[in-house]
Amino acid sequence: MESSQGADQPLGAAAPADWRTSLTALAAGAVVWELTARLSVALPPFSVVVGTLIELLRGDVLLPALATSLASLAVGFSCAAAAGLTLGLVLGRSRTAEHLSDVYLDAVMSAPTLIYVPFLFALFGVSRASQVAVVFAYAFFIIVTTTSAAVKQMDRRLIDMARAFGATDRQILWRVALPAARPMVLIGLSLGVTRAVKGMVVGEMVIALSGVGALLRASAARFDLAQTLALLLVVVIVSAACNLLVGRAGRALIDR
C-alpha cells in the first residue's frame, strides 16, 4: 500500500490551509487597526495608510528609493550568507576554531548592531558600500552562530554510518552533514534576511543618504504618520518576500 504523502509534509512546506489562516489573521488585523484608529486621533486609519501607499507607488520617489535599498540588501545579504555559512561550517567542525572565536562572537552579538554603524560609516564613507556593510553586519553573525550550532548538534552516528559505507569527506559534507543541518541553517538564513532588512532601513536612516530608510526618516521628522506607516508596510512586505525567497533558494541549494 502506497500511502499518500499529504499528512506527512516535510518540515518547511506550508500547506495551503496555512495561507488561508494567515490571510484571515491579516484581514482581522486590518479591521482592528481601522476601528482603533477611527476611535482615537493618534493613529492614521488603515484605509488612509493604504491610500498613501498607493499614492507613493504612483509617485516617482518610492520606487527608485526602493530599488536603491533592495540593491544594497541583495549585495549585503548575499555576502553575509556566503561568508556566514562558510565560517559557520568551519566553526561547527573545529573545536579549536570554535573556542578561539566564541568570546568574540558572543561579544559582537550581545552589543546592539546599531553601535557598529558609525564605525562602518567612518570606514566606508558616504557611499553605497556603507549601506551594504550595515546590511552585512546585521545579518552575518546570526547566520554564523546558527550554522555552526547546526553542524555541532548533528547526529555523529550518521557520519559514522556514512564512513562505514565508504563515504569520502566530501560526500559526508554534501550527503550527510549539510542535509542534516539544513532545517537549522534555513532558520538561520531566514533570521538573517529579516535582520538584513532591518539593517538596510537602519543604515539608510542613520546615514540618511538614500533609499526607503531616508524616506522613512524624512516622513517621521515631518510627523507624517500616514506616510511613515505606509513605508513601514513596504518594509514589512519586503521582509516577508525576502524570507520566502531565501527559504526557496536555501532548499534548492542544499539538495537532498
Binding site: R157, M161, R256
Partner: peptide
C-alpha cells in the same frame, strides 16, 4: 564489509 547499526542510523530525510 557492511555494518548494521544498533540504532539503525537511517537518514531521516531520505
Amino acid at each position: 564489509r557492511a555494518l548494521v547499526f544498533q540504532d539503525f542510523a537511517l537518514l531521516p530525510w531520505a
